[in-house]
């Protein structure tokens, strides 16, 4: 089975969020970049497990500029066979999805694994768009995935429960918690990653359907009102009369 895992570059979860250029750009100064957690922990690792069980190959694909290469090498160190970077800016989900769908179709991938969302722009968009452009099924928020022959068996989180799904390959999946256990690259993996192929390809022509005009930070909380631990009744009064929350 040919497996494609789509990975995106994301700021570390503890990164300070600030903006520059009149609040139009994310301030990357001093920010550590990582593989988007859902892509690494769940999509990539489950892809590797399926390959280990059923044979085949795992390719990682990222749309981005050359500063994406370190996170691609990390994915190779965890165990992907080879990597592709589509050399383009990533300002719009539909633009990115068109690049991924085109590559996946041309190269006959049967299973496309994405994360449930990127932790920077929080789109939850790209995977579903890729599926529509490939005209194949899409299952979002997958928490369990198995493949036997050309059939995928899937568990997906829905409001207050799970849905059990059967689908034919090819398919696009967005991965969430439960699908796999994160793996840490070992020394051998890191050494091997250096010599694995990372192919850079040019993007196809497409336009941006959306563009970010500006960013802002939420207003800081005005301060916590403390209530004495011996006077819990007072908290209830405040929640009832002041906050009108109960």
């Amino acid at each position: 089975m040919k497996i494609l895992v789509c990975i995106s570059k994301a700021p570390d979860t503890t990164a300070k969020i600030a903006f520059t250029d009149g609040d139009t750009k994310f301030d990357e100064n001093g920010v550590q970049f990582i593989v988007n957690p859902y892509d690494e922990w769940y999509a990539l690792v489950r892809g590797l497990e399926l390959k280990e069980a059923n044979g085949g190959s795992v390719t990682v694909l990222s749309v981005g500029r050359v500063d994406t290469d370190p996170i691609i090498r990390k994915a190779l160190a965890i165990g992907a066979d080879d990597a592709v970077r589509i050399d383009a800016d990533t300002n719009d989900a539909l633009y990115v999805a068109k690049q991924i769908a085109n590559y996946a179709k041309e190269n006959g991938y049967e299973l496309v694994l994405c994360g449930k969302e990127t932790i920077d722009y929080n789109g939850s968009q790209v995977a579903g768009m890729v599926a529509e452009l490939m005209e194949v099924p899409y299952v979002s928020l997958t928490s369990k995935l198995d493949v036997a022959g050309s059939t995928a068996t899937i568990e997906r989180d829905v409001e207050g429960g799970v849905e059990l799904i059967e689908a034919n390959l090819p398919i696009v999946i967005s991965s969430s918690k439960g699908m796999a256990e994160a793996r840490i690259p070992n020394m051998r993996g890191i050494m091997a990653a250096r010599s694995k192929p990372l192919t850079v390809v040019a993007p196809i022509e497409a336009s941006n359907a959306t563009s970010v005009k500006n960013f802002s930070l939420p207003a800081a909380k005005t301060g916590c009102k403390y209530v004495d631990a011996d006077n819990v009744q007072e908290l209830v009064n405040l929640l009832h009369n002041e906050a009108k929350a109960i």
């Binding site: 700021p11 969020i17 903006f19 932790i119 920077d120 722009y121 929080n122 336009s207 941006n208 359907a209 959306t210 563009s211 970010v212 005009k213 500006n214 960013f215 802002s216 930070l217 939420p218």
Partner: peptide, 15 residues
């Protein structure tokens, strides 16, 4: 919309 897991907001234009 909220971005960066609720740590910031963005105004996004649809083209």
């Amino acid at each position: 919309k909220a971005v960066f897991s609720g740590k910031a907001f963005a105004e996004v234009e649809v083209n």
